Simulated scan of single mutants.
Amino acid sequence: MIKVAIVDDHKILTEGLQGLITDSGLATVVGVAHSAGQCRLSIGFWKPDVLLLDVGLPDISGIDFCKELKQEFPDIAILALTTHDEYSVVRQMLDNGASGYVIKNALPDEILAGIEAVAAGQTFLCHEIDLLMKRPSGKNIWLTERERELLRLVSEGLTNGEIADKIFLSPETIKGYRKNLLLKLGAKNTAVLVKMAFEQKLI
């Protein structure tokens, strides 16, 4: 039987998930944590095969926590279970080692299918996320780590010179990066760029 742990700060949801998983006969819940801190303390004892991980945790971003967990416990399959359905969030979770991504309003059968698939070493995307990832790439914006850092500094209102000092690059290089960002996001100026960055949760 598949051993599942759940990390999510919504207690009602975790109770519902526990019931769903236990009743399925497919898996058993070996532990529940409502924060990354709680999970860190217990995951070594739980030894789950699959970890259901929320992206929006109270103490750390689930995206960062996913990376941390995969480095420490590479054998645990992580299935993101979240309300976030933005391309950039899904992409970052998968890049950080998640084996699957399910949104919270997915059908119970899809959640169970996700647990089964990632436990078997497969990648699993719920129907809605699968469609999102297959959309024409014009709607999907994927930024490199450096571009995201630059975008964050631009959104803080720093000039090219100030950004250059901060990340040890020449103002000319920053100018090129900024131009690329405008092109990539299809923004006509910095104000639009910053607005899009926040709307699409790119930073």
Rank of each mutant, 00 (worst) to 15 (best):
R40C: 13
R40W: 15
W46H: 09
A77Y: 04
G114E: 01
S24M: 10
E15T: 08
L26W: 03
Q18L: 04
V90C: 03
A106G: 02
K134C: 01
N96E: 10
I43R: 10
V29M: 13
I129E: 00
K139I: 09
A119P: 05
Q92E: 14
G31N: 11
Y87L: 07
V30D: 13
V32K: 05
S24H: 05
S61L: 10
I129Q: 00
T123Q: 13
L125R: 00
D64Q: 09
L26I: 14
C39K: 09
S99C: 13
L125G: 00
Y101R: 02
G25W: 06
K134A: 04
G37W: 08
L20K: 05
T83H: 07
E86F: 09
G37I: 12
M133H: 05
A80S: 13
E15R: 13
H84L: 13
F65S: 02
I111D: 01
T82M: 10
A98V: 10
Q38V: 05
L51V: 07
E116R: 15
K47T: 14
V32H: 01
P48D: 11
P48L: 10
A113H: 04
D85P: 03
Y87S: 12
D85H: 07
L131P: 01
Q18V: 06
Q38E: 15
L26Q: 11
Q92D: 13
N96C: 12
I63Q: 02
